[in-house]
Amino acid sequence: MKSSWVVAGLALVIAGGGFLAARPRPGVHQPVRFNHAAHVVAGVDCDGCHATVKEQSFASLPKLEDCMQCHDQPLTKDPEEKKLKAYEAAHAEPPWQRIYRMPAHVYFSHRRHVVLAKVECAVCHGAMDKAKEPPVRPAVEQTMTWCIACHQKRHASIDCIACHR
């Protein structure tokens, strides 16, 4: 009697697991299937699109006019590129989705990290220059322990109020 319950319970767990695995993976989906690798090969630096990364605390997402500086005339036959023209015709910005979000109580400055400490973008964002598809989830799991490990390695401040606000 008892063992039949165990079997039934196991079956439920397995069925539930299968159900979860069959569902589409959650993640962030971008309006355009942006190919980071192709842009890097074409000679566009990170700050070519994420323009404020060296001046502000935040690294901005590209505006349509930034895209149009190169894509005003089609460069490829990719249907994804045609979407840009559609956004331009509709006078709309592509609704880029953010992947990395700082908790509200954390102060983070891109300028400080990129310009002053000369931290490579890939240290926190992974090898985006090899990414042919837009990432659906953070490439690097950014936890406080991970921040502190790097701060200690580089002799940066580990004072709590240096990052918490």
Binding site: P103, H105, S157, D159, C160, I161, A162, H164
Partner: peptide, 15 residues
């Protein structure tokens, strides 16, 4: 709540 190296008494809200 703790004293930072700059002498300022900080308060870390999530803690």
């Amino acid at each position: 709540t703790f004293q930072s190296p700059s002498g300022i008494v900080g308060q870390i809200y999530p803690r």
